[in-house]
Design a protein around this nucleic acid. Structure first.
Length: 223
DNA sequence: CACCAGGCAAGTA
DNA sequence: TACTTGCATGGT
């Protein structure tokens, strides 16, 4: 039975909670997720799949202009018409189909009422969301965390890239294992998960695009 | 010109 | 199970 060592003064603190604090100090709060309603955030989560947020904003604006950013209205228009409206977000045919599937799920399961959906427990909701065609683990977790404020950590490609490069885990570790790693080592607080994921995305975009470990990466001085 | 962005499903070996 | 590919616009 070994006694855990306390880091000496000046020695790096490897805990991911400490990294969170440092990233927050470095970049400041990221303000995720922009959106006026829970439903808007859910739609945004599907539209932003492998797509820059800038392009998604235009699509959401188009939906708003046409008063279509609610389950009832979206369930009535054709998939073809929808694809035209969200054109700017890319993959527009596939995403129109995915939005349609999600709205259909909302209507049939919760009568299009997010308030009813909100009453369900997180595990049940996650399983339901994953059954909807077009919603994978990251999108499901984004909906749970950012729309419904559940304590679910979102793992994305930046999380994989950055933390595997710093040897926190194998670069192709399973999604759920990576998620478990963060949840086990952080306070179970959706506000922390919210900000941390956004900070990781910010870090990845800014410093970890091409080189395996770039010199400018602020994590280098901590790790 | 190339490359990538707040992924997922379907196909192949 | 572990890769690979199609999907598509818009910015750098």
């Amino acid at each position: 039975m070994s006694i855990p060592q306390i880091p000496e003064r000046g020695e790096a603190d490897y805990s991911i909670l400490n990294l969170y604090n440092r990233l927050l100090s470095h970049f400041g709060p990221q303000g995720w997720w922009p959106g006026e309603t829970e439903f808007e955030i859910m739609i945004g989560a599907i539209l932003t799949q492998n797509t820059s947020w800038r392009n998604v904003e235009k699509a959401i604006s188009a939906l708003k202009r046409n008063n279509l950013l609610n389950p009832e209205a979206l369930s009535r228009i054709s998939v073809n018409e929808l694809s035209t409206l969200i054109h700017s977000s890319g993959f527009f045919r596939i995403k129109a189909e995915r939005l349609s599937c999600f709205v259909k799920y909302l209507m049939e399961r919760y009568k299009g009422d997010v308030g009813r959906m909100r009453k369900m427990d997180t595990d049940t909701l996650r399983k339901e969301l994953l059954k909807v065609k077009g919603i994978g683990p990251e999108t499901a977790d984004s909906i749970l965390l950012y729309a419904l404020n559940r304590p679910v950590f979102v793992v994305d490609s930046y999380t994989r890239r950055v933390f595997s490069r710093h040897n926190y885990f194998y670069k192709r570790e399973r999604y759920e294992k990576i998620q478990e790693f963060f949840i086990k080592n952080l306070p179970k607080d959706p506000r922390i998960y919210n900000e941390y994921h956004a900070l990781i995305v910010r870090l990845g975009k800014t410093y970890c695009r091409k080189r395996p470990l770039c010199k400018e990466c602020p994590l280098n001085e901590y790790l």
